[in-house]
Structure formats: structure tokens, C-alpha cells
Simulated scan of single mutants.
Amino acid sequence: MKLRDIAHSRSGDKGNISNISVIAFDEADYPFLAEHVTAARVAAHFDGIVTGTVTRYELPALGALNFVLTGALGGGVTRSLALDAHGKGMSSALLDLELPDLELPAPDRHPNNQNGGERP
């Protein structure tokens, strides 16, 4: 299952730092996200792109995780020659992170799941 099946993201960037929030569609999935979307997994997912640290902040009241990735934008948005190295592109890439399957109790549980709740 992909992270995008149970969460969406928001992001931003400043200088050479990307900030990505991962927000569960259903707050009941937050413990699953907290267990499986770790700073180490995010760093491994962006291996070769992020040259600095990945720090995770937990926001359980919002059902969200926030990641701060230093050394993530090739020296900064205005200095990088990479195509779309901004935070928004990185948040979309993070949603491709593979996770273990999660049982869905109802087909319409996650509004952005285009497969009627079924896993691809």
C-alpha cells in the first residue's frame, strides 16, 4: 500500500530546507502512520536527494506528522538546477512511500482512494 492511500500532505520550503506534513485522512490511522512513517524511513526514501538530517515532529491531535528535511533542495530553490526540487514536489514523492497493508473497515473510508477502498 502507498502512503497516499491513507494520507495526504502539505509542504513548504525555505532556503535548503523542505518541510513536509503527512496528515491521515482518518485520525484512527494516525498510530499506524506514527509506527511506519519514521524519520529513518523518510531519509531512506529520499536517499541521494536529502543530504542533511530528517527530523520528525508528531502532532497526534491533528492526526499528522511533520518532517523537516535539511539539505533537501540542492542548495536552495533559487540555486538548484534540479527540475521542481521544491517542497511540493517532495511531498508528492513522499506519498509514494510503500507501507504494509492496513485493513480498511469500509470501502469509502478514505475519500481520495479511487479504488472504492480496495487496494490496487
Results as ranks from 00 to 15, higher is better:
87 G>C: 14
5 D>Y: 06
66 N>D: 00
87 G>Y: 14
103 E>N: 08
51 T>C: 12
3 L>Y: 02
93 A>W: 04
116 G>E: 04
6 I>G: 04
51 T>Q: 14
74 G>I: 06
42 V>S: 01
40 A>H: 15
80 S>W: 03
55 T>E: 05
34 A>D: 09
86 H>I: 03
95 L>H: 04
107 P>A: 15
17 I>V: 14
85 A>S: 10
118 E>C: 13
9 S>T: 15
2 K>N: 05
44 A>E: 14
18 S>K: 13
96 D>K: 14
42 V>Q: 03
99 L>S: 05
112 N>G: 01
17 I>Q: 07
108 D>A: 11
72 A>R: 08
68 V>L: 06
45 H>I: 03
37 V>L: 06
68 V>N: 03
118 E>D: 09
81 L>A: 03
87 G>Q: 14
117 G>S: 09
118 E>W: 09
111 P>V: 04
38 T>E: 05
85 A>T: 04
50 V>G: 13
80 S>M: 03
27 E>H: 15
42 V>P: 05
119 R>D: 01
105 P>D: 06
61 A>C: 11
53 T>Q: 06
45 H>G: 09
45 H>M: 06
44 A>C: 07
19 N>L: 14
116 G>N: 09
7 A>H: 08
61 A>K: 13
83 L>P: 09
46 F>H: 10
79 R>M: 13
115 N>G: 08
10 R>P: 00
51 T>Y: 07
85 A>C: 11
63 G>D: 05
21 S>G: 12
99 L>F: 05
19 N>K: 13
67 F>N: 01
20 I>Y: 13
64 A>R: 15
6 I>L: 13
8 H>L: 08
10 R>D: 00
118 E>F: 09
12 G>V: 08
49 I>R: 02
71 G>N: 07
59 L>G: 02
99 L>R: 03
35 E>G: 00
71 G>L: 11
89 G>W: 05
106 A>S: 09
87 G>D: 09
39 A>L: 02
37 V>F: 01
77 V>S: 06
4 R>C: 06
39 A>M: 04
14 K>M: 11
53 T>R: 06
30 Y>P: 00
78 T>R: 00
101 D>N: 06
72 A>D: 07
90 M>W: 06
21 S>F: 12
118 E>P: 12
115 N>F: 10
81 L>Y: 11
99 L>G: 04
103 E>A: 14
10 R>K: 14
71 G>A: 07
49 I>W: 02
62 L>V: 08
111 P>K: 02
